[in-house]
Amino acid sequence: AQASVVANQLIPINTRLTLVMMRSEVVTPVGIPAEDIPALVSMQVNRAVPLGTTLMPDMVKGYA
């Protein structure tokens, strides 16, 4: 199954992502693919992302 990017902590709005904030997990619905984690580093989220939330393309500025 495809692993997705999941928030490893609460990520406040406009925060630049770092590796420690993200983990890969097989979840439904599928979000951003886990292999994109390196590309997500330093991108900003456009909303607060609670712990355990799957990151979707529309949550990350410049990803989609």
Rank of each mutant, 00 (worst) to 15 (best):
A1Y: 13
A1I: 15
A1F: 10
A1V: 13
Q2M: 07
Q2F: 08
Q2K: 13
Q2I: 12
A3N: 09
A3Q: 11
A3I: 13
A3D: 07
A3V: 09
A3H: 08
A3P: 15
A3W: 07
S4N: 02
V5E: 01
V5I: 14
V5P: 00
V5N: 01
V5S: 03
V5M: 02
V5K: 00
V6F: 02
V6I: 12
V6Q: 03
V6N: 00
A7C: 04
A7D: 01
A7T: 09
A7Q: 01
N8L: 05
N8V: 10
N8D: 11
N8Q: 11
N8H: 07
N8K: 06
Q9I: 09
Q9T: 13
Q9H: 08
Q9W: 14
Q9V: 11
Q9P: 01
Q9M: 13
Q9E: 13
Q9K: 07
Q9Y: 13
L10T: 12
L10D: 11
L10C: 05
L10V: 11
L10F: 12
L10P: 15
I11E: 01
I11R: 00
I11C: 02
I11A: 01
I11V: 09
I11N: 01
I11Y: 00
I11L: 09
I11D: 01
I11W: 01
P12I: 06
P12C: 04
P12E: 15
P12G: 07
P12R: 07
P12S: 11
P12K: 10
P12V: 06
P12D: 09
I13G: 11
I13S: 14
I13L: 08
I13K: 10
I13D: 15
I13V: 15
I13Y: 14
I13P: 10
N14I: 03
N14Y: 08
N14H: 13
N14M: 12
N14A: 10
N14P: 01
T15K: 07
T15C: 05
T15H: 06
T15N: 05
T15Q: 07
T15I: 05
R16H: 14
R16M: 11
R16G: 14
R16C: 04
R16A: 15
R16P: 11
R16N: 12
R16S: 12
R16F: 10
L17P: 02
L17Y: 02
L17F: 02
T18P: 01
T18H: 06
T18V: 11
T18L: 08
T18A: 10
L19G: 07
L19K: 13
L19Q: 06
L19H: 11
L19W: 10
L19P: 10
V20T: 10
V20L: 15
V20G: 13
V20R: 13
M21I: 03
M21Y: 05
M21H: 07
M21K: 03
M21P: 01
M21Q: 04
M21F: 04
M21V: 04
M22W: 02
M22P: 00
M22E: 01
M22H: 00
M22Q: 00
R23C: 05
R23L: 05
R23F: 04
R23W: 04
R23M: 06
R23Q: 05
R23Y: 06
S24K: 12
S24C: 04
S24P: 12
S24Y: 05
S24T: 14
S24I: 10
S24A: 15
S24N: 07
E25F: 06
E25M: 10
E25C: 04
E25R: 14
E25T: 08
E25W: 06
V26E: 10
V26T: 08
V26I: 14
V26H: 07
V27L: 05
V27Y: 02
V27Q: 04
V27I: 08
V27W: 03
T28M: 10
T28L: 15
T28V: 11
T28E: 11
T28S: 11
T28H: 15
T28G: 06
P29S: 03
P29M: 04
P29V: 08
P29Q: 05
P29Y: 03
V30I: 14
V30L: 15
V30A: 15
V30W: 13
V30P: 11
V30G: 09
V30F: 11
V30H: 10
G31P: 01
G31N: 01
G31L: 02
G31D: 00
G31K: 00
G31E: 02
I32K: 00
P33C: 03
P33A: 11
P33V: 12
P33Y: 07
A34H: 07
A34I: 07
A34M: 09
A34F: 06
A34R: 06
A34V: 10
A34L: 03
E35F: 14
E35T: 15
E35W: 09
E35Y: 15
E35C: 05
E35L: 12
E35K: 15
E35P: 08
E35N: 13
D36P: 00
D36L: 10
D36A: 14
D36G: 09
D36F: 11
I37L: 12
I37N: 00
I37V: 09
I37T: 10
I37K: 08
I37H: 03
P38V: 08
P38N: 07
P38D: 13
P38M: 12
P38L: 10
P38I: 08
A39V: 11
A39T: 15
A39E: 07
A39G: 08
A39L: 15
A39F: 07
A39R: 12
L40F: 00
L40R: 00
L40Q: 01
L40C: 03
L40P: 00
L40A: 01
L40W: 02
L40Y: 02
L40H: 00
L40D: 00
V41R: 07
V41G: 02
S42T: 10
S42L: 08
S42A: 10
S42G: 11
S42F: 12
S42W: 09
M43P: 00
M43W: 07
M43C: 03
M43G: 04
M43A: 11
M43E: 06
M43Q: 06
Q44M: 14
Q44C: 04
Q44D: 05
Q44P: 07
Q44I: 15
Q44Y: 14
Q44H: 12
V45G: 02
V45K: 00
V45T: 09
V45A: 06
V45E: 01
V45C: 03
V45P: 02
N46R: 10
N46W: 08
N46C: 04
N46D: 11
N46H: 08
N46F: 07
N46A: 07
N46V: 11
N46P: 03
R47N: 10
R47I: 10
R47H: 13
R47K: 07
R47L: 12
R47M: 08
A48E: 15
A48N: 13
A48G: 10
A48F: 15
A48R: 09
A48H: 11
A48D: 15
A48S: 13
A48V: 12
V49Y: 01
V49M: 06
V49R: 03
V49G: 01
V49F: 03
V49K: 00
P50Q: 09
P50S: 12
P50K: 09
P50V: 11
P50F: 07
P50N: 09
L51S: 12
L51T: 15
L51D: 14
L51M: 12
L51W: 15
L51C: 05
L51N: 11
L51V: 10
G52W: 05
G52Y: 05
G52M: 05
G52N: 13
G52K: 04
G52I: 02
G52A: 06
G52T: 02
G52S: 09
G52R: 04
T53E: 13
T53K: 08
T53C: 04
T53G: 12
T53W: 12
T53V: 10
T53D: 09
T54E: 02
T54G: 02
T54Y: 02
T54D: 00
T54H: 03
T54I: 10
T54P: 08
L55N: 00
L55S: 00
L55K: 00
L55C: 02
L55H: 01
M56S: 08
M56C: 03
M56F: 11
M56W: 06
M56A: 07
M56R: 08
M56L: 10
M56E: 11
P57R: 10
P57K: 09
P57S: 09
P57Q: 08
P57I: 06
D58T: 10
D58W: 12
D58Y: 13
D58C: 05
D58L: 10
D58E: 13
M59N: 07
M59T: 06
M59G: 03
M59A: 09
M59R: 03
V60R: 01
V60K: 01
V60A: 01
V60D: 01
V60S: 01
V60T: 02
V60N: 02
V60G: 01
K61C: 04
K61L: 12
K61M: 14
G62N: 12
G62T: 07
G62Y: 08
G62A: 08
G62L: 08
Y63V: 04
Y63F: 06
Y63S: 04
Y63M: 06
Y63G: 05
Y63D: 04
Y63H: 08
A64K: 03
A64C: 05
A64H: 12
A64Y: 04
A64L: 15
A64I: 13
